[in-house]
């Protein structure tokens, strides 16, 4: 069965790159450029993995993570958080909110693939 990953990322070029890499590795990728309506659909239909950008328009990645962890259906959802800000304080906050993996941009494609496989329990 094809695993499904949701990518919440406002930079179209970055989400396109992620989509290309993961699709090539056999994932089904759904991209959402805006996190506002994403939480509801994630809870209703939880994917196997979520790739979450921290800096989003209108709502921050932290807020989305917090809401997901409060819902039973997404409490254990593996979340890979990506950020371009790269500050230590953000990593600590993300871990406190229950992030599965925290990576800074720019990233190596192979690292993302490895992290996604590991979090989804593919290997």
């Amino acid at each position: 069965m094809v695993k499904r990953v949701v990518v919440i990322e406002d930079e179209p070029n970055i989400s396109e790159a992620i989509r290309y890499i993961l699709t090539r590795n056999g994932w089904h990728v759904d991209v959402s450029p805006d996190g506002v309506g994403a939480v509801q659909s994630l809870c209703d239909d939880p994917p196997d993995l979520l790739i979450l950008d921290l800096m989003l328009p209108n709502i921050s990645g932290f807020e989305i993570l917090k809401q997901l962890r409060q819902d039973a259906r997404t409490q254990a959802l593996p979340v890979l958080m990506l950020t371009a800000k790269g500050q230590g304080a953000d990593r600590i906050q993300a871990e406190q909110l229950g992030v599965s993996r925290f990576m800074t941009k720019p990233f190596a494609n192979s690292e993302v693939i490895a992290a996604v496989d590991e979090l989804a329990g593919v290997k």
């Binding site: 290309y20 890499i21 800074t104 941009k105 494609n109």
Partner: peptide, 21 residues
């Protein structure tokens, strides 16, 4: 600095990812 970092890393992320592709 945080803003600069973000504004620089964002295009660089695309550049690196597509370069590797």
């Amino acid at each position: 600095l945080s803003q600069i970092s973000h504004e620089l890393r964002t295009p660089m992320t695309s550049i690196r990812a597509f370069s590797e592709i």
